[in-house]
Design a protein around this nucleic acid. Structure first.
Lengths: 340, 340
DNA sequence: GTGAAAGCGCTAACAA
DNA sequence: TTGTTAGCGCTTTCAC
């Protein structure tokens, strides 16, 4: 009474080329040749092979296939830091799109900002002989042993620049974003502008913050040290620090959030205040870096400055394939994706 | 002057077990044994092997390893329909978390609602000998040939129920969501309630819409056929149909959007109207099914009804591992994840 | 046009 | 404890 044909029934062993050959009455080589183009195989035999394969629901073992020298795995390894950030979800779409166009498949993992997990993931990806890697480096500053194991596998890092890491890398135009955000706020008459940075995104944070200070300085506006803070890239931390800002005797009139997640934290605090009856006008104007889909529908006006995340993913993938397909040689490249 | 040690320099061939063995002055088996636990290997040899492996940056070839009978690939295939929907991004997080706990890695792809792409992806995943599959079925109704190729590989479908597909499946509580949404709106005095369904999500849409009609009927409120429409799961289509509703001589006072994407389309239209000076009160109240992070911060009040997407992903993965680890046998299961 | 043989990198079974 | 042998599923010589 067991349900042998059911989805999860243990049917007999997975059919191999040999099984197909036997059923078709040919040798395994003929099967291989038929299924990979069919050159030098009599049409009649091809028909028999194809029929046999269909009948057995045969599926070539890609792992065995990739074992032969000179064969590619058709695999790309992608490690991001945090799928919870919709920016990286969209980034992954962009990568996926390009990979599909190129006939590649994706090994995917999230590091959750941990260097250990990054090591685990990348090592495994390399063990599976990925043809290339796209990595958003974890903010965990531990040394990256896996870099030495890359061998000939091209690596593209994205979104963050890690000191001492000389790889092809795709970055957002942090300077332009910070410059625009700061200028826009100054233009609206703000002078007490708080900067809520991300302690994690080492390189990006520094660039954003430096540019903020530079523009402020150029405009002759002093930056209150109390108003420059860094938190981890978590909603709760953004919220906590926002509360801190609002409790200051002389709170800021505008606030720049370095990331998507942090901005959501800010907005949650704003939401609570509004629900408690606060007037929107008394809350600091909010600008942010990153992607916030409904930004223009919020009860609070939010200005978002960002590259298009999907385009960002596409660029990262294109950069990888430039190497893979030999269009680019030589020293590593540093690409900056312009603002959307 | 070529930069041999650079990241993308073509270093010599990838080292194999044999290379390590040679360098350590032992046989390949000793390397294998050492690296997989080290039972029955003299401590001294182990040291030599490990040192040699480190020196060569050796990484075992996981594909070759998985080729041996009785070995697992440690790979799970995950195919979703649309990474653009943050719901599925969070779903993927949930799956990833569980996979990591179980020491599995993820082959990932997006079908973009195309049955062809779904076939491509799943076939390739199976060819790479994934141990299990998690699939959000594409709405494309074309027959699923790949189902017959599963063999012993367990499959869990999620979010949508496909007719004639007898698999383990994880679903949202559509009836409860629709029931609550409709009841809540009726309780607020609305009677002209529009239903903006998703033409794609075959099973889910039907369940949602049926429950909507049922609750309306039970409350003795007539459903205006003009106010029940289906669109594809795209922001633009949601927006277009919303425009349609608003132009009716007798527009609805409330609107239920079947998905996240559709609701965003509605909100975009609302945003434009508000910017053009319309009063929020004149826009239909909006309820939706799915996940909208900033729902309570919008200028328009939105009621969102949904399961927690991450929990949803975790449940799907757990259901898969229940089969993989032999905790569950027999006929396929249908799990409904309760509302968040 | 077809098949036999060899070998990709690895590990289980068997010998020493 | 160590090494030799064999074979996983596939494709690339090379011979017929």
């Amino acid at each position: 009474m067991s349900d042998e044909s059911s989805t999860h029934g243990a049917s007999s062993a997975v059919p191999t080329q040999k099984d197909v050959a036997r059923l078709a009455g040919v040798s395994p080589v003929t099967v291989s040749r038929t299924l990979s183009g069919g050159s030098n195989v009599a049409p009649e035999l091809q028909v028999r092979v194809i029929e046999a394969a269909r009948q057995l629901d045969y599926l070539p073992n890609e792992n065995a296939r990739g074992l032969r020298p000179g064969q590619q795995s058709n695999l790309i390894g992608v490690a991001i830091t945090n799928l919870n950030n919709p920016f990286y979800g969209k980034f992954a779409i962009g990568v996926e799109e390009v990979a599909r166009e190129k006939g590649r498949f994706i090994l995917f993992g999230s590091t959750e900002e941990s260097a250990t997990r990054e090591h685990e993931l990348v090592s495994n990806f390399l063990g599976r002989r990925v043809e290339g890697l796209i990595v958003i480096p974890a903010s965990d500053p531990a040394p990256r042993q896996w870099m030495r194991r890359l061998g000939p596998v091209p690596l593209v890092t994205a979104a963050r620049e890690i000191e001492g890491l000389d790889t092809d890398r795709v970055l957002m135009d942090d300077a332009a974003m910070a410059q625009r955000a700061t200028t826009d706020l100054l233009g609206r008459g703000h002078t007490r502008i708080a900067f809520l940075g991300n302690i994690d995104q080492v390189s990006a944070h520094r660039a954003l913050c430096e540019e903020f200070r530079r523009v402020m300085g150029e405009a002759g506006v002093a930056v209150d040290p109390m108003l420059v803070r860094s938190v981890t890239d978590e909603v709760v931390d953004g919220a906590a620090q926002t509360d801190g800002f609002l409790r200051l005797p002389n709170p800021p009139t505008a606030l720049i959030a370095a990331t998507n997640r942090i901005a959501v934290g800010v907005l949650q605090v704003y939401g609570r205040r509004l629900d408690a009856g606060a007037a929107g006008l008394h809350l600091p104007a909010l600008s942010m870096f990153g992607d916030l889909e409904l930004a223009d529908l919020l009860r609070v006006r939010v200005l978002a400055y960002s590259s298009d995340p999907r385009e960002f993913g596409r660029t990262a993938a294109q950069t990888l394939f430039d190497r893979l397909e030999g269009r680019v040689h030589g020293p590593s490249r540093r690409l900056v994706v312009p603002l959307a």
